[in-house]
């Protein structure tokens, strides 16, 4: 810093034009990949997506001989292959919340909104960048999880299922789509709550607390309501079989997309109105 006093004039610079949505996307990409929390969360997501199916497949394979017919019937190869999605969704959701609340907790949001005072381009850019990155990074892990678990279970005919079997490719790729949507939903929650702990708690309440609470309700109510919860609707994207009281993949998936859109819409309205 010894050179400081010698340079006191601000060099002129060409004015490179206006803020565009594309430029804000590039900016958000720079922000996302330049944080360690991003790398750790995504690494955890990838690891959990692959490790759990491999572990479950190994355990199932080694215990197969001692399992009852009833137990064996309960094991579905696709449930094993996608077991990791249920766990890694938490890592993706935490990152989704952090993408926006990290800016509020550090004050970065003031710099972001000073550069992009119309604000909404920042929300859209975060959504697009985080959505694309999480889908592209979670797609290989779900495919690896599927083929690796199938390879481990290759000795057991009952647990073999082909990727070309109706619904299997949709379910496996749906695992990555589900994780992407969970991340976007969490980002929307984070933008509404503007606080990391609050955002994660809200997400956990919606995904992990409210669904089991539904069991308190009379069965007919539970059956009628539960299928429309975000977690239950979203789950259909990566489920091969669908119960009498759950939505089909497309309606379920579209409903979950609707929840994401609703969350982002509320976030957008609040983002423009609130003081920073």
């Amino acid at each position: 810093m010894s050179t400081l006093a010698s340079i006191q004039r601000l060099p002129r610079a060409a004015h490179t034009g206006r803020v565009t949505q594309f430029r804000v996307v590039l900016s958000e990409w720079t922000k996302l990949h330049s944080l360690r929390s991003t790398r750790w969360s995504l690494f955890a997501g990838i690891l959990l997506t692959i490790a759990f199916p491999v572990l479950f497949a190994a355990v199932t394979s080694s215990h197969w001989g001692t399992m009852s017919a009833h137990e064996r019937a309960d094991r579905h190869p696709l449930d094993i292959a996608l077991a990791g999605v249920n766990v890694s969704q938490l890592a993706i959701a935490v990152l989704g919340v952090l993408v926006i609340t990290g800016e509020y907790s550090t004050g970065m949001i003031r710099a972001s909104f000073t550069a992009v005072p119309k604000r909404l381009p920042v929300l859209w850019a975060k959504t697009v960048v985080f959505g694309v990155v999480s889908f592209l990074l979670m797609l290989p892990p779900v495919l690896i999880a599927f083929f690796a678990s199938q390879a481990i279970l290759s000795r057991h005919d009952l647990l073999q299922i082909s990727f070309s079997h109706p619904g299997v490719a949709r379910s496996v790729i749906g695992g990555a789509i589900y994780l992407m949507l969970v991340g976007i939903f969490a980002l929307g929650i984070g933008a509404i709550v503007r606080n990391t702990a609050g955002g994660i708690a809200t997400f956990a309440a919606i995904f992990f607390v409210i669904p089991p609470l539904m069991n308190i309700l009379p069965t007919s109510w539970n059956n009628a309501i539960s299928q429309y919860l975000p977690s239950e609707a979203g789950r259909q994207i990566f489920s091969l079989t669908h119960g009498a009281h759950s939505l089909a993949p497309w309606p379920g998936g579209l409903l979950f997309v609707g929840y994401c859109a609703l969350t982002l819409a509320i976030a957008a309205v609040l983002l423009v109105r609130r003081d920073t």
Binding site: A13, T16, M108, A115
Partner: peptide, 12 residues
Amino acid sequence: NHLLALARTHGI
């Protein structure tokens, strides 16, 4: 990276 992220919003 902080400065780069801000610069990119304007194509700087």
